[in-house]
Amino acid sequence: MEYTADDVLRVARRHNNEKRSYLLVNPLQGKHMPVSPSLALDMMQALGAKVAKAVPHARLVIGFAETATAIGAVVAKSLADSCLYVQTTRETLPAAAHAIEFMEEHSHAPEQRIAAAALEAHLAETEAVVFVDDELSTGRTLLNIIDQLKAALPALAGKKIIAASVINRLTAKRRERLFAAGVECVFLVGLALGDYEAQAAAFLTQGAAETEALSPVASCRTIALSRRATPRMGLPIGDYMAFWRAAGESFAAEIDWAKDESILVLGTEECMLPGLLIGKVLEDEGWESVAFHATTRSPIGISEAAGYPIAAGRQVKSFYGDARRTYIYNLRPYRHVVVVSDTAHEAREALESLLRVLREAGCKDVLYLMSRES
């Protein structure tokens, strides 16, 4: 399938961000807007097919957090089950990861890290390295991390480098700069220059509302899953996706929900792929109304104006740290909600905060699927 800007692009206003006033929202990505898991994965697989055609023997893929963690994983799977997938993270990595830090300059949370140890162990096994993001706009973040990785990992200098993205809006001058640095671009949709700041400014927006801290919260059922590895530390993508597909199949076999009841599978921040895969299993098993999206650290302006993508938003506590604010957008009533998280944090307060918001939105039955490292 060929994708167009109409398929993958909506313009929103960032809230209280002086570095960049607008945000490009992809309605098929499963981050800020609910989407069918199948439609989201179809888009990601389309990008993966293009990457596999360009560099079929690549065996190392790096996906950028938050929004491209699932996209990067699907691109890696498109190359081979054995492909090593590493996602960048804003979370703290263990000392054994030999983390390299870099800055995503325009972001609300600019500090990112990557596990250099995983990359170093696998650079000899690939002729190309693929960096995956949802959007490539200036190339600054990408060149920043490539420079730092080459300094720390000299073997990277001899590899072909691919910048894969759903959207590419680089100017000719910026594309030349990337090419001079040895970076080739693969993308689904190329965009002409546009004044996105003006498009975003045309809408009058407000920030996401605070949660109601005093209302009582009912408990929810919790299912604990153990897992052996995390993409933050690097892993063969085939094993990881097979684990979550099997977890989805086991979950689907346990529930007795009517096939016409609405279901939301909700990921937490960087944890997107597990929920997408579980949602896809539910669709494959015959549930007719399944949606997926995730909480996010991005503060986005909300507006009910026609044509604006973020119509509602609530602030919730983070599953990854008590002091962090996160948001959930475009929430609507669902009969069932499955929250999927890979946090190592106890997250009791975060779960209560999210439960409160889900109940207030009219969601009836909530289940928490918690993944912990074994």
Rank of each mutant, 00 (worst) to 15 (best):
Y85G: 08
I100Y: 00
E104F: 05
N144P: 09
A117W: 00
S78G: 13
N144Q: 12
F131K: 02
L39A: 14
L47W: 03
A152D: 07
E105N: 08
V55C: 10
I100P: 00
D134P: 06
A70N: 11
D81N: 12
P56R: 14
L79M: 09
V75W: 14
T126S: 05
L47N: 02
Q45E: 14
L60I: 10
V129N: 11
L41D: 15
D133T: 01
A52G: 14
A80R: 14
L60D: 04
A97C: 04
V129P: 02
E127Q: 10
I71H: 03
Y85C: 05
T141G: 03
I146R: 12
S107G: 04
A121E: 10
M44D: 09
A65S: 13
G48F: 14
L123P: 00
S82C: 06
L143F: 00
A118T: 05
K50R: 14
K53A: 15
F102T: 02
D147R: 08
L149M: 04
R113H: 13
S137Y: 03
S82Y: 07
S38H: 11
A73C: 05
A70S: 13
L123A: 09
S38L: 15
A155P: 00
T88G: 07
A54R: 15
T67Y: 01
T126M: 04
A109D: 12
P110R: 02
A152T: 09
E66M: 10
D81V: 09
P154E: 09
V75I: 07
A46D: 12
V129L: 07
A54W: 15
P94Q: 13
I146V: 15
E66P: 04
H57S: 13
L79W: 11
A96M: 07
A52E: 09
V75N: 03
A124R: 11
A115Q: 10
Q45Y: 06
S82M: 03
S78K: 11
G63V: 04
V61E: 01
D133L: 01
T138V: 02
E104Y: 07
T89I: 06
E91G: 00
I146T: 11
Q148Y: 10
A54V: 12
G72N: 11
A76K: 02
A65N: 04
A76E: 04
V75A: 05
